[in-house]
Every structure is written in structure tokens, then in C-alpha cells.
Design a protein around this nucleic acid. Structure first.
Length: 765
DNA sequence: GAATGCATGGTTTTT
DNA sequence: CCATGCATTC
């Protein structure tokens, strides 16, 4: 082949192992790729290589990624390698997107065998929870006794293991199992009667589809000659079965993963999938990518030392050709607020003095709850930031409300959405439980959808048809709702989505409920306008298809998917889980404390089951290895949880990091750096004399609490930070009595008058 | 049927 | 702390 004499540009700049991974196109291949070892590069170059050098048609290639964002970026990179359009037809996406695709492409079989009509909806986590709750009630149990959340996680786990309600029922061991089996059965029934699927179904139903119609599977097996799966260590049983089935014919299965980055065992991810790959495929080629090109020597070394403590791993050493870099910065802060302010200050300093851009930074944390305090600090600062996850846009009440109407219009079987509309829209007023029961009776009697009961009450040509037994006010209210829904339904397919949005918020009276004088409600309305803008992007889509396309896109969107691919000039606030696969020049990992990282549940289980603790350590490892240049590790001596301060200690994980790689500083070092030494005794005396008011936001533990300090020279114009009020600017200083009284303008709380000795202000900058 | 107020329990992590 | 759910009241 000519490619040997003239090495193709697709191999340029790749090391020997990476090249091998690219050119080994035939047969099963396992790539064990450490963090920063260029696996995305290998994947993109390999796909480009298959198309350009091996002449494989793009539509014969299937690549599964962990997020839509990863898919998008890889497609872009491939286009850059071999030109726009050269990879058209390549199928690349998440497992869930792939699952939907299989279901959508086979509407006949899906309807006949799986009982799903083509307009089926994908229920999100909140919908699932609601459905689980109703299922608990439906079988005559109390959701307070049997937490829907727990039931749901059991159901989800079962589905991930391809265990249906029947099999689950057959294998019950305890009474608890038995009850859950009954809920599971009801949950499935309700889901199907709503013509809906949940996330787990997107993976499990394609497998049932293939079982029911082997010809369909064969078609895909024939088509996808080359399969690639990224993040293989985080696949679960269903995903494993799906991949195995698809790859069975051509056996060109290329999987990439890193057992040390397996962080989804709680989601039924099974690390054995990657560990046993060579048992499943005896002729597999194994390639190791161990050279880390991402991080400095000190960061790589720290990561290596940390992960080395795990027992459940293949021994290997992470190395880097990169320079040693600067030491890691480990810092203890007084509490969560100070931790957040420290992060903000460090970022501001680096931006000002080192010319860093905000998007060079990521702030990571274990639990989403931690993002609150961080956000507060960023909000009162002048630094642009972005939170990945948290309260998801599509989960906001007002957004879900309008989406419920859209979903109902698309899928009239969606009773959950209909009831949401009744509960939350002005139009639903006057329709109470009694009226709803009557309509429900009618619908089951006539074997019609619930929504049809409302439509049957609409005055007009069908007035002679049987209608639900309602009278008076309830009838009038239901009829009115029916009329609006009927009108809206007629407009689906002809109106553009944004216009449909307008019709909805207007005709249902929803828009009128927003109070213009309430800042909060105007924010909600702004959210809806954002939704409207989102809908406008579908103007180019065929109106008949637009609604279906939009709803599907909404359902499958992940938190990180909304992260712009390029730079946005914002600091990224993100959970450690979501950060997997990303990289940033400067990373802060916050809350590196016992109970948080590792999370308390893992600590509690430690002696009976060490695996969760090891997963926590892998999570920390994932976080460390996101950093390219600078890594900060912070923890707080006191942290607020459930409204109370609890004192904390540094995470055991920190102990593994060699001291010579660290520039540590204790809280007191941190303090004295802030100017003046600390005349603690005096101040403490004054502090106890002072009113409780100024102390209320301080940790109750006097020992652990930072002593108040004075002697910091305060001047007007100075930017300061207060644990409770956030950032502010000093407006006046009145020093008549030795202990200066300050007037501070806080961004969020307006002007406050504080005594310098008690306010415990940190000077910003 | 809606508005208000109190009690309760919950935070791991996400497609 | 907070969000949710239930009870009380009108």
C-alpha cells in the first residue's frame, strides 16, 4: 500500500501506540487509555483513517460517545481532518440517542411488538418519579412508607440488567422486593398507557426489538461494519448487550476506556465489561496509552499517587513528558463561604496579573448542593461564570409547564402532562379531583384517552356523542379547557413552534399569571422567553416534524451538552462527574473533605464494602486529571449542611499526595497574609461582648471558628467580603471610637452598617 | 378550590 | 437550608 511508503498525514503527530490504535482497524481492539493520553485524538483519527485510507463508507461506521457534546466535537474534528461532508452519514452519538434511533427507524415492529406508537415521548427523571409515586398509590400503598425514589432506583437498576417486571417478580427474596415488583409492574403499565418510555427503556427496548425481529438486528449488523465505543468502563449490562449484538457479525469492535476513571457503578456501570473484554474476544488486540500530554509532571504525579491507593485496579504508572510545573495548592478555609471567596479571589488575581481568561478556570465539587455557595460568591463578583447542571433549565417549573402542553399536543396519551396542565394553568381552575375522576371513568369506559373526555365536552358538531358525567361549574371549566386544547391541536403542524408557544401562553391564560412587579416572576417569564428563543431555532424544520424533533432533543440533552465547545469567557462550575472528559488550564477541586469527597455514604460502608470508597477515589482522580497547569485543592473547617454548620477534616485522599508537590497553607497562614497579624485575644473578647446578630452566620463551634480580627485598615472604596452578605464596597469609614464603624454597600443586600471588629470582613484583592 | 402556614425530610453522582 | 406536602382556613 502506498500509505506505507508515504505515511499519511492522519498519523502525523501521533505516538507509536496511538498510531497502532488508528491503523488496527480489523477485529476487536481494546484501548486502555489513561487521562490526557489522546484517546479522542485516536478515535477521530481512526474514523478519518477508515474513511480516507481504507475507503470505508461513513454510514458503515458507528461511534458511541458519552455525551452529545463529545459527539459534536468529534464530528467537528473529523471534518477538519478530512473535509466538510466527507464524514456525512457517520453515526455518532450517545447510547440513548442510538436507542431512540433504533426505535424510531422501526415504527411498525415497535408498534406491533412493543406497544409503542410513533409519537411516543421520553419521560425524564421528574416524570419518572411522578409516575413511580402514582404507581405506589395505585397499588394501594403510601408513598411515605415506600419512597418512590427508592422504588425508582430499584426499577432502573432492574432495567439496566434487562430484568423485566415478570422476572423481577419471580426472583423476589424479601417482602420489600415483592412490593417493589408490584410497583414495577404498575409503573410499566402506566408508562405504556401514556405511550411513553423512560431513559432505561431507550436501551432496553432496542434489545427487545432485536429479539422480536431478528431481521432488524441483522440489518444493523450488516450496516455497521465498524463500531467504536468511548468510555467503555462506564457501560452497563444493557449497553454491553447492545454493543455485543451489533458487533457480532463483523467483530470490528473498538473500545476505549480507563478502569481508573470508572465512576458510574451506582448507575449499574459494570467495570467487568472492560476488564473482561479479552475474555469475550479472545483474539482482541490490546493497546495501552499511558503517556499523559495534558498535565504538568506534578499534577500527573499526584494523580498517580492517589489512584495507586486503590486495590481494585490494574497496576500501571501514569507518566508525562511535560514539564514539572508549579506545585499543587492545598488550602484549608474557615467555611464554605470563605472557600468560595478564596476561589473567586484567586481567579480574579490570575486574570488581572497573569492575563488569564475566565474560561481557563473550572471549579469542581462533589455534590450539586455545593454549587450554591460558590454561585453566590461569583454572583457578587465581577467574574463571568457558568454552572453546568444544578437546576436544569428544562426542569424549571414554568418551562415544564409549557412543555407539558407541547407534549400533550404531540402525544394525547400523556396523562401526566394533561394533569400537570390542569394543576398549573389558570385554565385548569375549577377542575378538581371529583371532576377528574368522572372524566377518568368516562375515558376508561369508552377506551379513550383522558384528553378525549375534555374534547367531548366541547360544544359543536359532536355534541350528540356521549360525554363525561359532569355538571355545572366543573362541566363549564372542563369544556373550556377542551376548547382551548382542541384549537391548539389544530394549529400543531401549521404554526411554527414559537408561534405555537405564543398561542399556548396566551390562550391558556398562563402569561397573564406573571406579576410584572415581582422580580422573581419576571425571571420566570424571562426563562420562558428563553424557551421561546429555543423554539425559534426550529423554524427551519418542517412544521409537521418540528414538534417531535424538538421534544426528543429536549429529552436527551445532558448538562454538559450545553457547554459551548469553544471559549465563552466564563468560569465553569461543574460536578466532578460531569467534568469527566473535559480539561482546563486551572482547576479548583473544592470540598476535599471527609464526608464529601469521599462522600459520607461511602465512608459509612467502608468496612462492609470498600468498593464505593474506591469509586470516590477514582472520582477525585478524574478531577485531578482535568487540570493542565494549575491545581487547587480546597477544604473547609466548617461546612453548612441542612442549615447547620458541621466541622470537617481534610480528605484522606490528600494524604497520598507527596508533600514536595504541594504548596500548602493553613488557615492561619491565610489570615496573616491578609495583612496585620492577629490580635486575637482582644478581638475575641470584643467578639463575645458583641451582639449575637453579627455572629449568627458564624459557625457555632467557637474552637473551629475563625477568630474575629481587626487591625485591617479599611478605607472607602475598598472591596470586601462578608460571610453572609457576600461582596461589597466600603462606602464610609467612621473611626471616631477606635473601632471603626463601616457602611458597606453589598451587591445583594444593599447598605449595611457594621463594626469592623465584628464584621469579620475579608479584603478582596 | 385556593391561599396560607407548619412540618418534615432530604443531597451523592446522570443519560 | 430548601422544597414539598399536608392541614387549616376562608
Amino acid at each position: 500500500m502506498t500509505t506505507i511508503a508515504h505515511p499519511t498525514s492522519l498519523l502525523d503527530g501521533l505516538n507509536e501506540d496511538q498510531q497502532k490504535a488508528v491503523v488496527t482497524t480489523e477485529g476487536p481492539v481494546l484501548v486502555v487509555a489513561g487521562p490526557g493520553s489522546g484517546k479522542t485524538r485516536v478515535l477521530t483519527h481512526r474514523i478519518a483513517f477508515l474513511i480516507q485510507e481504507r475507503g470505508i463508507r461513513p454510514e458503515s461506521i458507528l461511534a458511541v460517545t458519552f455525551t452529545n457534546k463529545a459527539a459534536r466535537e468529534m464530528k467537528d474534528r473529523i471534518a477538519r481532518l478530512i473535509g466538510d461532508g466527507a464524514a456525512d452519514g457517520l453515526v455518532m452519538g450517545t447510547f440513548h440517542a442510538l436507542g431512540v434511533r433504533f426505535l424510531r427507524q422501526n415504527p411498525g415492529v415497535v408498534a406491533d411488538r412493543l406497544n409503542l406508537l410513533p409519537n411516543f415521548l421520553i419521560y425524564d427523571t421528574a416524570d419518572q418519579l411522578e409516575l413511580a409515586k402514582r404507581s405506589v398509590v395505585a397499588i394501594g400503598l403510601d408513598p411515605k412508607q415506600l419512597a418512590p425514589r427508592r422504588v425508582l432506583s430499584r426499577i432502573s437498576a432492574a432495567k439496566s440488567l434487562l430484568v423485566g417486571p415478570d422476572e423481577f417478580g419471580r426472583e423476589v427474596e424479601t417482602y420489600d422486593d415483592e412490593v417493589i415488583a408490584r410497583v414495577y409492574r404498575e409503573y410499566e403499565r402506566a408508562l405504556r398507557s401514556a405511550n411513553a418510555v423512560d431513559f432505561d427503556d431507550l436501551l432496553a427496548l432496542p434489545i427487545r426489538l432485536f429479539d422480536e425481529a431478528p431481521a432488524v438486528l441483522e440489518r444493523y449488523q450488516d450496516r455497521f461494519q465498524y463500531l467504536m465505543v468511548d468510555e467503555y468502563q462506564d457501560t452497563n449490562r444493557v449497553q454491553y448487550v447492545l454493543v455485543s449484538a451489533l458487533a457480532m457479525k463483523h467483530r470490528n469492535l473498538f473500545v476505549v476506556g480507563d478502569p481508573d476513571q470508572s465512576i458510574y457503578a451506582w448507575r449499574q456501570a459494570d467495570i467487568r465489561n472492560i476488564l473482561d473484554f479479552e475474555k469475550d474476544y479472545l483474539d482482541a488486540t490490546r493497546i495501552h496509552l499511558e503517556l499523559n500530554y495534558r498535565s504538568t509532571g506534578r499534577i500527573v504525579d499526584a494523580a498517580d499517587r492517589v489512584i495507586r491507593e486503590n486495590t481494585q485496579r490494574i497496576d500501571r504508572r501514569l507518566r508525562t513528558p511535560n514539564e514539572e510545573g508549579v506545585p499543587l495548592i492545598v488550602r484549608e478555609l474557615a467555611d464554605g463561604q470563605h472557600e468560595a471567596q478564596f476561589v473567586v479571589n484567586e481567579i480574579r488575581r490570575a486574570v488581572k496579573t497573569h492575563g488569564r481568561s475566565a474560561d481557563d478556570f473550572a471549579v469542581m465539587y462533589r455534590t450539586t448542593a455545593q454549587s450554591r455557595v460558590l454561585e453566590e460568591a461569583f454572583r457578587t463578583s465581577d467574574i463571568a461564570y457558568r454552572i453546568v447542571g444544578g437546576v436544569r433549565f428544562y426542569e424549571r417549573k414554568e418551562v415544564k409547564d409549557v412543555l407539558a402542553v407541547l407534549r400533550l399536543l404531540h402525544n394525547p396519551a400523556d396523562n401526566l402532562s394533561l394533569e400537570r396542565v390542569i394543576d398549573n394553568f389558570p385554565l385548569g381552575r375549577g377542575i378538581g379531583p371529583k371532576a377528574l375522576d368522572a372524566i377518568r371513568d368516562w375515558s376508561s369506559q369508552h377506551r379513550r384517552f383522558l384528553i378525549d373526555g375534555f374534547l367531548a365536552l366541547v360544544p359543536g358538531p359532536h355534541a350528540d356523542e356521549p360525554a363525561p358525567a359532569l355538571s355545572g361549574q366543573a362541566r363549564a371549566a372542563a369544556s373550556k379547557l377542551g376548547t382551548v386544547l382542541a384549537t391548539l391541536r389544530e394549529q400543531v403542524g401549521s404554526l411554527a413552534l414559537a408561534e405555537l408557544f405564543d398561542a399556548i401562553v396566551e390562550r391558556t391564560g398562563y402569561q397573564a399569571t406573571f406579576d410584572h412587579d415581582s422580580e422573581e416572576e419576571m425571571q420566570r417569564w424571562a426563562n420562558l422567553l428563553e424557551l421561546r428563543a429555543d423554539l425559534e431555532r426550529y423554524d427551519l424544520v418542517e412544521p409537521a416534524e418540528a414538534l417531535a424533533t424538538y421534544l426528543e432533543q429536549v429529552a436527551l440533552i445532558a448538562d454538559v451538552d450545553s457547554l459551548p465547545d469553544g471559549s465563552a469567557g466564563q468560569v465553569t462550575l461543574i460536578t466532578l462527574h460531569s467534568a469527566k472528559g473535559l480539561e482546563f488550564p486551572i482547576v479548583f477541586i473544592t470540598g476535599v473533605e471527609e464526608g464529601l469527597l469521599p462522600i459520607s455514604r461511602a465512608v459509612e460502608a467502608e468496612f462492609s464494602d470498600p468498593l464505593p470508597l474506591e469509586e470516590e477515589r477514582r472520582l477525585f482522580y478524574v478531577g485531578i486529571t482535568r487540570a493542565q497547569k494549575v491545581l487547587y485543592l480546597t477544604y473547609a473547617a466548617n461546612r453548612m449542611s441542612y442549615g447547620r454548620y458541621q466541622s470537617g477534616v481534610a480528605s484522606r485522599f490528600l494524604a497520598a499526595i507527596p508533600q514536595e508537590n504541594v504548596r500548602a497553607s493553613t488557615r492561619s497562614a491565610n489570615r496573616s497574609q491578609n495583612g496585620a497579624g492577629s490580635p486575637r485575644l482582644q478581638d475575641r473578647a470584643r467578639g463575645t461582648l458583641g451582639s449575637r446578630l453579627t455572629w449568627e452566620s458564624e459557625p457555632p463551634s467557637r474552637e473551629a471558628a475563625p477568630p474575629p480580627r481587626a487591625a485591617v485598615e479599611h478605607v472607602p472604596g475598598q472591596r470586601v467580603f462578608h460571610a453572609k452578605f457576600g461582596e461589597g464596597v466600603i462606602a464610609e469609614v467612621n473611626a471616631r471610637h477606635g473601632d471603626p464603624e463601616l457602611a458597606v454597600d453589598f451587591a445583594r443586600h444593599g447598605r449595611k452598617r457594621l463594626l469592623a471588629s465584628l464584621a469579620n470582613l475579608d479584603v478582596v484583592e
